[in-house]
Design a protein around this nucleic acid. Structure first.
Length: 271
DNA sequence: ATGGTGGCATGGCCA
């Protein structure tokens, strides 16, 4: 079975529900993982998604900030929410696909919204940066994020770190900018290696090539200046390494009317 | 070096 999965930081799902609808109609992913929904669960635009054939939705939202959701054509066998750093922020949700989705073996999808970390890259001076670093440390020690053997797991989301030199427009100019400081890059890569995760983007596109998934709203002309960062990630467990058949960053979406500052990132797998 | 834009608890946060 061919499974198409997209991750997208939507920056308000209610404001951009028609962008989501257009995307779903054109790309038709089986599963869409959203971040920054900024929407309480009882206000989530379920009806519009059901009209489009996405009848299964797992929600972890809150008013105004953060919020993650998994929207799916396929039913879930189970859903779970984890709390990090003892904060009630809505930053994680996971679902398990299995028999109900017609799969012989389970497939777990984790959807994350890692804290952005504020502006000052010093955990002493900036509690938001301290929170980000602690969050990454907890992800590293989180047992459910350590798929072993033939376990089939996918971890996606806005991880708010661009870990490699060509994940940002200028490595040198970004070294003291939160999202590309050495400490957080090391911590994100430690999460990755602790769980034996495979970074799908860098499995397919060499480290020498630039990849971005986010462009600031503050640029006068985002496309001309092209000062992007790769903040949105798709990782798969080693059992799924050879299952990946495609990976796409939909850069065009940054140029849509009233866009999110992040674009959809899509993977296709044989499951 | 600074400030630039966008969203929502619409006014001060957060990104």
């Amino acid at each position: 079975m061919r499974l198409t999965l997209t991750t997208w930081n939507i920056n308000s799902v209610r404001l951009r529900i028609e962008l989501v609808a257009d995307f779903l109609q054109s790309v038709q992913p089986d599963v869409l993982c959203l971040q920054e929904t900024k929407c309480p669960d009882d206000a989530f635009p379920l009806k519009r998604l059901k009209q489009l054939g996405y009848e299964h939705v797992a929600l972890n939202g809150q008013k105004g900030y953060h919020g993650v959701a998994i929207v799916s054509k396929l039913p879930f066998d189970a859903t779970d929410i984890r709390v990090f750093c003892d904060k009630l922020d809505s930053r994680h949700i996971s679902v398990a696909f299995g028999a109900k989705a017609g799969l012989a073996a389970p497939l777990i999808v984790h959807d994350f919204y890692v804290p952005a970390g504020g502006d000052i890259p010093d955990p002493e001076a900036n509690p938001k940066f301290a929170h980000k670093l602690s969050f990454l440390d907890e992800m590293k020690s989180c047992e459910p994020l350590h798929p072993r053997g033939d376990a089939r797991h996918i971890l996606v989301g806005d991880l708010n770190v661009a870990p490699h030199e060509n994940d940002v427009w200028s490595h040198k100019q970004m070294l003291k900018i939160v999202s590309h400081t050495p400490i957080e890059c090391e911590k994100l890569l430690a999460v990755q290696s602790e769980g034996n995760w495979i970074d799908v983007a860098r499995e397919r596109i060499p480290l020498s090539e630039k990849i971005y998934t986010w462009w600031s709203y503050r640029a006068a002309d985002w496309a001309a200046s092209n000062r992007g960062r790769r903040l949105d990630h798709i990782w798969v467990s080693s059992a799924l390494k050879d299952a990946v058949s495609d990976y796409q960053v939909l850069r065009d979406a940054r140029g849509w009317e009233r866009p999110s500052d992040h674009v959809p990132v899509t993977v296709v797998l044989d499951v």
